[in-house]
Amino acid sequence: MDLITIAFYFFGALTIVFGAVVVFTKNIMHAAFSLLFTFFGIAGLYVLLSADFLAITQIMIYIGGILVLIIFGVMLTTRITGVEVKSGKIGKVQLAVAGLLTVLIAATLIMIFTTSNWYTADSVPLNSTVNEIGTALLTNYLLAFEAASMLLLIAIVGAAFIARKKH
């Protein structure tokens, strides 16, 4: 086993184990913190896929931004100390059906992923993807880039309106 293989299995296990904790734990704070490890594991996978810029973005935006937002959401809507933090229960039958469905979906996807022919090409490893990404964003994807800025403005206006207290 070379180093890459070990790293892959480490990050892969990190991602999936903590991903499972996120959806199975009863405590919402545990879920939020497990999400942190999942995101971190995924960032590791990105590094293995030689996506350096994405790995940093993943850590900065997902962990530094979205996760903090989610934790704030949890703290503002539930009493941390009380029992309230635990999320509600769902009937056993529903859980079983959902679990079965999930396993079915996972099995189908894995079957498709392992048997299909994907578009592949010989890859030229890049020292850094930052250059390429920057160029693409400002040439071929210029409009999407600008539209995303408009989207963020709309999101700010909307979120500020909805979340602020009554006038």
């Binding site: 999407a144 989207l151 909307g158 979120a159 909805i162």
Partner: peptide, 16 residues
């Protein structure tokens, strides 16, 4: 990707 960005732009406004 443009479809995704556009759908989200309209969705986010409509959610609010």
């Amino acid at each position: 990707i443009m479809i995704y960005v556009a759908i989200e732009t309209m969705s986010i406004s409509s959610y609010v």
